[in-house]
């Protein structure tokens, strides 16, 4: 079934190129057409023909991809290839950027993500995000974790909140380190602890999907290893999309890997396939370190 949809996507793409009569575009589309397995039978997030523009310039070209339930999908590629932009489409964080426009069909469990009738607030509660730089709020550790549950009205009684804090921090692997200083500022933690606090904060609103935008790029190797372990544990309950610059990290944590190049999705395959036997020459060039 998935191959069929892929063919369809290709056909629409080439048809569109023919329609505009741009020969160059056709050949480019052939170079950059997605190879591999972009689609999944158990899709949690489904993206079709996504185009993203910053003002006049186009950052994402016709990307189609599924992210399956309880799956970790890694997005890799050289800087400026559009992987972060694409990730930020999934919970509409691009809305905050002036002049940014997203086209295409994006859906979460079959419900559209974009559209006039869609409220971003519950969407972002379902699709949580962890950012490149740890960004705990200038509040106590406790308040950082209960921030989401409070604004969404998930809990308001002290006992319930306490439980949420303990659960989230335990799942983020931070509980033992901070249980005695929950009333201390979150900004006083180390970088790795701050990032785990941000993960705990995201988990606390019980999202279904967690987006991670280079979550370890500001961390040392030990903190990175701790977070990678955590991602593996989180996979049981959540669907995860992670953007990373480290190919080793992608290989360690993900089940499928998507390779982006200059705004095009070049290849999507099982992580093992991508790193041992890439289908596309660009992917091969990147993972063997010829550029990037």
């Amino acid at each position: 079934m998935s191959t069929m949809t892929l063919d369809a996507a290709e056909r629409t793409e080439s048809a569109r190129s023919e329609l505009t009569g741009k020969k160059v575009a056709v050949s480019q589309a052939e170079v950059r057409k997605t190879v591999g397995q972009p689609f999944s039978d158990t899709a949690k997030l489904r993206m079709r023909d996504v185009n993203v523009f910053y003002g006049e310039s186009q950052a994402i070209h016709n990307v189609s991809l599924d992210i399956g339930r309880n799956e970790v999908v890694a997005m890799i590629g050289p800087s400026g290839c559009g992987k972060s932009t694409f990730l930020r489409c999934l919970n509409r964080m691009n809305d905050t950027i002036e002049g940014c426009r997203v086209e295409g069909e994006l859906s979460l469990d079959g419900e559209p993500i974009y559209g006039a009738k869609v409220d971003v607030v519950p969407l972002r509660a379902r699709v949580g995000m962890v950012f490149q730089k740890p960004n705990p709020f200038p509040k106590t550790i406790y308040e950082n974790v209960v921030y989401g549950p409070k604004i969404h009205g998930i809990a308001s009684r002290r006992a319930d909140l306490d439980e949420i804090v303990e659960n989230s921090l335990r799942r983020a692997g931070l509980w033992n380190e901070v249980k005695d200083r929950l009333d201390k500022p979150g900004t006083g933690l180390s970088g790795g602890q701050q990032q785990r606090l941000c993960i705990a904060r995201a988990i606390a609103v019980s999202p279904e999907v967690i987006l991670m935008d280079e979550p370890c790029s500001a961390l040392d190797p030990i903190a990175t290893a701790r977070i990678e372990e955590l991602i593996d544990e989180l996979r049981e309950n959540y669907t995860i999309a992670i953007v990373t610059h480290s190919m080793q990290q992608a290989a360690r944590v993900s089940q499928r890997t998507a390779y982006f190049h200059l705004g095009h999705l070049v290849e999507v395959n099982d992580t093992e396939t991508v790193f041992t036997n890439p289908e596309h020459e660009l992917t091969e060039a990147y993972i063997t370190g010829r550029f990037g």
Partner: peptide, 14 residues
């Protein structure tokens, strides 16, 4: 810092 706003919006704050 914008990262604080992003963090709050990313959790579904209005």
């Amino acid at each position: 810092p914008q990262s604080l706003r992003d963090g709050a919006l990313g959790l579904g704050s209005t």
